[in-house]
Design a protein around this nucleic acid. Sequence first.
DNA 1: AGGTTTCGAAATACGCGAGTTTCGAAATAC
DNA 2: GTATTTCGAAACTCGCGTATTTCGAAACCT
Lengths: 194, 194
Amino acid sequence: MNATTTVRPGRQRSEAADEAIMEATLSLLAEHGYVGLTMAAVIERSGVSSATLYRRYTTKTELVIAAVASLFPEPVDTDTGSLHGDLSVFIRHVAQSIERRNERAVQALRLEKERNPELDATLRERFLAPRLTELKAILTRAKQRGEIDTIPPAEVALSLVTGPLYHRAYHLDEPLSPGFVKSTIAFAVRALRA
Amino acid sequence: MNATTTVRPGRQRSEAADEAIMEATLSLLAEHGYVGLTMAAVIERSGVSSATLYRRYTTKTELVIAAVASLFPEPVDTDTGSLHGDLSVFIRHVAQSIERRNERAVQALRLEKERNPELDATLRERFLAPRLTELKAILTRAKQRGEIDTIPPAEVALSLVTGPLYHRAYHLDEPLSPGFVKSTIAFAVRALRA
DNA sequence: AGGTTTCGAAATACGCGAGTTTCGAAATAC
DNA sequence: GTATTTCGAAACTCGCGTATTTCGAAACCT
């Protein structure tokens, strides 16, 4: 009924092309970063023609923002009844996300955020906000159960809890093995029980 | 006496130009990343002519590797007599390094490491190795004092101890305030006293 | 002093990436 | 069926980045 769903005459836009473009953009971002991403590479990998790509996104910036905005972090239910259980689910979820492609694509946009406020806002909304909300809920429940005395700022807690995962993956280039994830969980629980 | 110190006839290479090139390269790396770094920008910011730059480094890769290799992490004496004291010095040192330019330049090379083994090796040797050595010494002393039972792998400990700092600086874009650094130190001490 | 090298300034060749356009074929609303 | 729109393929313009070269001036070893 509204403007976006109005059916236009003529041939309809291929949904397969849409998905192929997003897929190619995200994987190329993860591999080569924002500056290293080329429209030509997107065209080649997606198998789409240049006319098709440019009719949807006239600039590279537009394309990247659309690709990032298409990402929805899968929601998680972390309410297990204990701080250790909640953090365990939360940390494993983040670890899985890091080892997939999306998080690498996001990470590759770090320098670009400073130059592109819209990109920065999109990233915060899609990735940071959900994590902060979830962690805040975990801390609130722990407080109610008496497992922690005071609730630290969610942003501080997020850095303490997930920082080690990113460091191992991106600085050391080591896999997030089950053993390492377990260590991270144990340390996070001890840290928050101040 | 050896080949590198042989005095050549004619005008000597300007040491000021050497430093200006390294300085410009590192700051531009931190700002724009490897792909975003251009020889023209190095020439402009360093105030050096293109002939001067290219006589020293014929390719961009060569220039970047030289710039990274020119970095010497300032050594720190972390031996204070207690685990808390040692980690306090260590973590503050890393935090300062992150807020300076060099660490940002190194971070910007993350994607490039995968394509350039020589760069990867240089980075590990200059940045990772000294940190691991220092942390290992801290852990060994703590073990001898009986402050910890077992010595964890140095790489695991490094991620747990410094990961939060990088996360806050690079993911949240928040400053490493004294309060946050203090939290990180407290977290690390509690974590290692398993 | 003479020969050698580096210096800054500038011009140049060359390739690559962004963005546009043209073309004929295919799909679809009406 | 007809008009409209999208499709892939391909050619094209334009600017920018890499790398090279030329030139005269300046610095420096012997």
